[in-house]
Design a protein around this nucleic acid. Structure first.
Lengths: 401, 401
DNA sequence: TTGAACACTCAAGAAAGTTGAGTTAACGCT
DNA sequence: AGCGTTAACTCAACTTTCTTGAGTGTTCAA
């Protein structure tokens, strides 16, 4: 018999796995499509959804009946839209499901329980004795139980947990940053948490999570391509492209903090010019000590000269960063948010020069080039929960898992 | 009757359209999945494909029988892999389909006809009398006919046309660059060409197309996340994320040429330091005139001092750019290619300092951080054709169209 | 008042995938 | 050499889900 060389062996397994479509998966895909369409507009009828998805009205009807049975939808009254039978509308049922968001920092763990439409039910801050791996796992596990008990939410109603951890992940040239957690470079954090919590788990850095939070319920609602500059300890970049978080080959895309930018004609690391640590360091040199956002805010309200100086520097650095982000990603908008008071963010946004030589400098824009997002201590934690919700509203066929 | 506010009207239509799954679309999706798996390994049997796709062997069997009937596959002998029945293998049938690639430049149009596995059947260069829109459309249309006739390929076997045009698209802050074509800012170029050629059309800039060429048949085979720095007139960045071209909200992602980088401590525009125009300008100041790649190559072979100086500057600029690309995208690798002789590219790659503070600086890498891709005059044109092939091998459910 | 427009349902039909039993071929152990 | 195990593949029956086309009810406009 003719034998052909062992060309392929099991080489097919080196392909990024992608799912084939069968009836069951098709239905699951379509369900998510319907949920997504309803979420997008708040309330919708069968016919509209059918038009938007290319399915028949009948199919949408069947799916809605399923979703009602699963408690994910509620009837939302009738709307008469011109001629014809009035539209029976459906909306997402807030208590149809819940998502648990966790943000792990070296000194504390933040948690949030949000419902299916993204409303926070509970938020907590738990100080950490130490940043050891097992301490963190135990704390998060315990908090999940407490959280469920207090809010009387069944574990079965939990759709998953989102975990925010400081990046970069793995052993990289940026390893050694002070914000890091020890012991997580071995093994897949998502898998470790999934085992500990017995839930589907999604792990991202703070910037990506914050971007997702903004997309689910913030200024980025309805946007599919945008960037989020997140003021954390340093400065992170969350990238959303085509509605999906851009993760990069090793999960570390968006590490913008260490690129070189120009301030007063000198090259500096971006996050040394614009970050929480940066403003603290700058003010410390001037003999001003700030330890939290409130102090920063009151300093701003008294128009502190040193703070205003720093803001000017930061705005210069931001302008350089903006040029890079816009020309490389061509986003609908760039959002600023995170651990920085709103007033300071607004000030920076107002002072940041929008580069003229940029693909984003176009007359037909629909959004400002720079916007303020949700800021505050819980942004990333709520973003962690948003990762789970995003998953629930994203059709799955053809998704790499 | 209770009336609910007109919350949604036809707001659902503002959603990015995404397809629901029905049997017909599921089959089309699965067909592409099977083709993709076979292409990935060259030749494969039913069972392997079933495992890779999560479909049953029987389903794959039925699909393969379809694809054989459509002339997209051929039997490829038998491979015995250990115990059990030997594997009946299938491979892509080269003449199962063709793709037409077009690169439009201000002074000439380049065309290529490639077969289903990416082998070029014909390539041409047609000088343009003028760069007017109708001249271009007429020329491309005529060339398509000639090309089909000469190669005796039926039009029905053509799966589509890829068009490479200089970006950025639309009226942006970078408009006014010398490489631009007049008259294309109104209307959708893809639609205009689709009407003129009566074919499915995909439009991209040179860098994205080159990246796709490299992924189909070059050094990026099997890579799903990489960046391609393309030396054209200026310098472009082609970005592939998760196997897809990253286009940005307005199709202009990757306009890296105009960002600021550091050379000898001074900030300059990247493409003023490293591009074909840059080397020509640099040498001209030294009294050396070069007009094409051959001259550049012979200059290099004689170790021309000025050229070596320029290469040093270019390598510095590249190092800055590399830091930005790596930290923002976290790609598997960065590829250098385009209108620059191989020897010069190799020289630059050897001299470009790989930034230590980069997420790409990790011990578990599988590819070099900087690689040379296909260079030469036809790279982008073949890339244009690759856009069509890519489409044919990419499952479609859940794709926005 | 009447008919067109439109959302929705019902029931029958079609498309595609899955399942499980059966066939064939190669390997390896005795 | 013989025989049981392993594995790819096929066949036929079955299941899921979608689509189609006819039918119902409501609203608007001529």
């Amino acid at each position: 018999m003719f034998k052909f060389g062992a060309l392929s062996e099991d080489m097919v397994s080196t392909l990024k796995p992608q799912l084939g479509a069968n009836p069951e998966r098709a239905r699951s895909h379509n369900k998510q499509l319907v949920l997504r369409a309803i979420r997008h507009v708040g309330a919708a009828g069968r016919a509209e959804i059918a038009r938007a998805s290319g399915l028949s009205t009948q199919a949408v009807s069947n799916i809605i009946s399923d979703l009602l049975g699963e408690g994910l939808l509620v009837e939302q009254g009738v709307r008469s839209a011109g001629r014809g039978l009035p539209v029976q509308q459906y909306a997402i049922k807030p208590d149809g499901g819940y998502a648990f968001g966790v943000e792990v920092r070296p000194t504390a763990v933040f948690t949030a329980l949000v419902d299916l439409v993204g409303t926070p039910i509970q938020t907590r801050r738990i100080p950490l004795r130490n940043a050891g791996k097992s301490t963190i796992l135990d704390t998060v596990s315990a908090q999940l139980d407490i959280c469920l008990k207090d809010s009387r939410v069944r574990k079965g109603a939990l759709m998953g947990a989102g975990i925010v951890m400081p990046g970069p992940f793995g052993d990289t040239g940026l390893t050694g940053t002070e914000s890091e957690l020890p012991g997580w470079n071995t093994g897949d954090p998502a898998e470790i948490f999934a085992n500990a919590l017995d839930l589907p788990v999604f792990v991202e850095n703070d910037a990506n999570a914050a971007a997702m939070a903004e997309r689910m319920n913030g200024v980025a609602r309805g946007l599919d391509d945008f960037a989020y500059l997140y003021f954390g300890q340093g400065l992170g970049l969350g990238l959303v492209q085509n509605g999906q978080i851009l993760q990069g080959a090793f999960g570390n895309a968006g590490e913008i903090g260490h690129i070189q930018v120009l301030v007063d004609g000198h090259a500096v690391e971006l996050e040394s010019a614009t970050s929480r640590l940066s403003v603290q360091a700058y003010l410390a040199v001037q003999g001003v000590s700030v330890t939290d956002m409130d102090e920063l805010n009151s300093l701003y309200s008294t128009a502190n000269r040193h703070l205003l100086d720093w803001l000017n520097h930061a705005a210069q650095a931001l302008s350089s960063a903006l040029s890079i982000i816009e020309n490389l990603f061509d986003p609908q908008t760039v959002i600023l948010g995170g651990a920085m008071p709103d007033d300071l963010l607004d000030h920076m946004i107002a002072r940041t020069a929008l580069p003229a030589r940029s693909v984003s400098n176009r007359p037909d824009r629909t959004h400002p080039r720079l916007m303020r997002g949700t800021s505050g201590r819980m942004t990333a934690t709520l973003g962690a929960a948003a990762l789970v919700l995003h998953q629930a509203f994203t059709p799955t066929i053809a998704e790499a898992r």
